[in-house]
Design a protein around this nucleic acid. Structure first.
Length: 116
DNA sequence: ATGCTGACTACTG
DNA sequence: CCAGTAGCCAGCA
């Protein structure tokens, strides 16, 4: 695993319950602007068992996995379990209301990210 | 080494 | 809303 990927997983570990981040935003927070695809690749390739991988969604609120796939269903269920609302219909929508749930790290959180 | 692919995204038409 | 395009570049054949 590359240093960049380590950074990504470190930041991911800090995304709080009930909030989400987009692939691009996570890359930015990890000091890797423009590298959203690396985030997706990392989630697909590395072991995210102990990390809140389900809190990473596309910038437009859709989930990265193919809609209807097992992974997509699990991610959606985990998000619903955290109280995250999906546009259109609480159970039938397919996009997270980003404006409402996107994580906005505060100063304290940012400092912790840089300490890692 | 080389070429494709894709859990990305912003932009344009 | 949909399609194409340009950056991105680690994996994998």
């Amino acid at each position: 695993m590359t240093h960049a990927q380590q950074q990504i997983l470190t930041v991911l570990a800090w995304v709080p319950d009930g909030r989400v981040v987009s692939y691009g935003q996570l890359a930015d927070l990890a000091g890797l602007p423009g590298r959203a695809r690396l985030v997706g690749r990392t989630l697909r390739t590395q072991d995210t068992e102990q990390l809140p991988w389900h809190r990473v969604v596309a910038a437009d609120g859709r989930l990265g996995l193919p809609q209807g796939s097992p992974g997509w269903l699990e991610q959606r269920q985990r998000l619903l379990a955290e109280g995250i609302f999906f546009k259109g219909n609480p159970l039938g929508g397919n996009r997270v209301a980003m404006a409402q749930y996107q994580w906005q790290p505060d100063l304290a959180a940012m400092l912790m990210l840089f300490e890692q």
